[in-house]
Computed example of a mutant assay.
Amino acid sequence: MIDASSAGDDVTDTSAWLPDQTTWVPAETDTTRPSAARVYDFLLGGGHNFAADRAAAARIEQVLPNARRVARSNRAFLRRAVRFMAEQGITRFLDLGSGIPTVGNVHEIARDANPESRVVYVDFESVAVAHSRLLLDGDERTAVVEADLTDPGTVLADPAVRALLDTDEPVGLLLVAVFHFVPDHGDPAGLVGRYLSALPAGSLAAISHLTADFDAEGMAQVAETMANSPNPMFFRPFDRVAPLFAELDLVEPGLVDADLWRPEPGVTDPDGPARGVYAGVGRVR
């Protein structure tokens, strides 16, 4: 759900303003096993993570030195995609696998364009859900749903999601950095299709996916690090990410490295694109 910064790829350390841990860690949370959402939070400079998450992140950075760049690249794509959608008149957003909030939330970005924008965040990670609800308490134009995106029937039947979709107004669907947690037998392309079938024509969908195309050895070790966590990872090459967009009309520049998707003017990295995330936005027919 969170962008690492308000501009460029700078990481914001949010640990200074974290609430008391008892307010954002559900009692059933197993803090001894790394969670992908919390490892990601750490790589983005957040503070909603535990020793097991930080240890996993350290192992990942040993084999993938640009892990933080890749994480920031993905979050920056999310920011630009939401802004693009807002510029196209989208005021309703469904963020699946929304993650742990810090700063630069989807609703904040969307409301820069239209203060009436509404967002429903969906995640199954207990810390992500607990802190999202804490942060958004009292915001009547946002909702947080605890559900697994691999169960579209449950997600789409939730009252908050039904209320969001219960008009002919186009929706911005965010499926950012989620499908590399879905194995082939989970049918990622089929999941995309089930969500798209619930959206009005003209809706937009943003999808990003980690890949091993540029560092097969490093990413194999990342997958090994996460294999025994609750969130094993399944990296896919370009020709297996592209089918996720089969039912969408891709907008320019198509499916590309996340850093190359409509980059902000004047924001470039002297080291070039991070090379680790494919990303694109498509329009629902």
Rank of each mutant, 00 (worst) to 15 (best):
M1T: 15
I2G: 11
A4P: 09
A4Q: 05
S5W: 03
S6C: 09
S6R: 04
D10G: 11
T12W: 08
T12M: 07
T14H: 05
A16M: 08
A16N: 08
W17T: 01
Q21Y: 06
Q21E: 12
T22S: 12
R33I: 00
P34N: 02
A36D: 15
D41C: 05
F42R: 08
L43Y: 05
G45A: 13
G46C: 02
F50P: 12
D53K: 13
D53M: 07
R54W: 00
R54L: 13
A55G: 09
A56Y: 09
A58H: 15
A58L: 14
I60T: 06
I60R: 14
I60C: 09
Q62N: 00
L64P: 00
P65C: 13
N66D: 12
A67D: 10
V70D: 06
A71P: 03
R72W: 01
R75V: 05
R75Y: 07
A76M: 06
V82Y: 07
V82T: 06
E87V: 02
G89V: 11
R92N: 04
F93I: 03
L96H: 01
G97Q: 11
G97T: 12
S98Q: 14
P101F: 03
G104Q: 09
H107Q: 15
S117A: 13
S117G: 09
F124H: 04
A128P: 10
V129L: 14
L134I: 02
E140H: 04
V145F: 12
V145T: 02
L149Q: 05
T150A: 10
P159W: 08
A160P: 11
R162D: 04
P170K: 09
L174H: 14
L175G: 00
V178H: 11
F179N: 14
F181C: 11
V182P: 05
P183K: 05
P183Y: 03
G190N: 11
G193C: 08
S197N: 09
P200S: 02
A201I: 00
L204H: 01
A206R: 05
S208E: 12
S208L: 10
H209P: 08
H209I: 00
L210H: 10
L210P: 08
A212N: 00
F214N: 01
E217M: 03
V222F: 10
E224K: 10
N228F: 06
M233C: 11
F234P: 15
F235G: 13
R236K: 05
P237H: 14
F238P: 08
R240T: 12
V241T: 11
A242F: 02
E247D: 15
L250N: 11
E252F: 01
E252L: 15
L255Y: 12
L255M: 12
V256W: 06
V256L: 13
D257R: 07
D257I: 02
W261V: 06
W261L: 01
E264P: 06
E264Y: 10
G266R: 03
P270F: 09
P270G: 09
P270W: 14
P273C: 02
G276S: 00
G276R: 11
V277M: 14
G282Y: 06
G282V: 04
V284Y: 04
